[in-house]
């Protein structure tokens, strides 16, 4: 939950407001960009993501360092689990307990 995960905005989606397709170390997920203040998000921007929401813009270099930091802290697996978990698999969403 407290992981800050770096990603790059690929495309601003039209299906609803403030939704963007974001590449996070090769995994593509729909991320909410409604909390990026000041200027609107655009393709190519690097962002830090908390619980599925982009919270701040960062430089490409800082994005790489953040990923490296997660690896060094042994949180890479947890980060990958969180990234792949974003958006829920629809079968998981509908399945019973």
């Amino acid at each position: 939950m407290c992981l800050a995960i770096p990603g790059q905005i690929i495309e601003i989606l039209q299906e609803r407001d403030n939704l963007a397709l974001v590449d996070i170390v090769g995994v593509r997920r729909k991320i909410d960009v409604g909390l990026l203040s000041e200027e609107p998000a655009k393709p190519g921007d690097w962002v830090l993501i908390h619980v599925g929401f982009a919270m701040s813009r960062i430089s490409e270099e800082d994005a790489r360092e953040q990923m490296r930091l997660l690896k060094m802290m042994g949180e890479h697996a947890a980060a990958m689990e969180e990234i792949t978990g974003y958006g829920l698999d629809d079968s998981v969403a509908r399945g019973g307990p």
């Binding site: 909410d32 619980v51 599925g52 929401f53 689990e81 969180e82 978990g85 974003y86 958006g87 829920l88 629809d90 998981v92 969403a93 509908r94 019973g96 307990p97």
Partner: peptide, 17 residues
């Protein structure tokens, strides 16, 4: 019925589904 979500947006998605 206890589920792990990684984002509150996904909890909302569960409600829609």
């Amino acid at each position: 019925d206890i589920r792990i979500v990684y984002s509150p947006a996904d909890a909302l998605k569960l409600a829609r589904a």
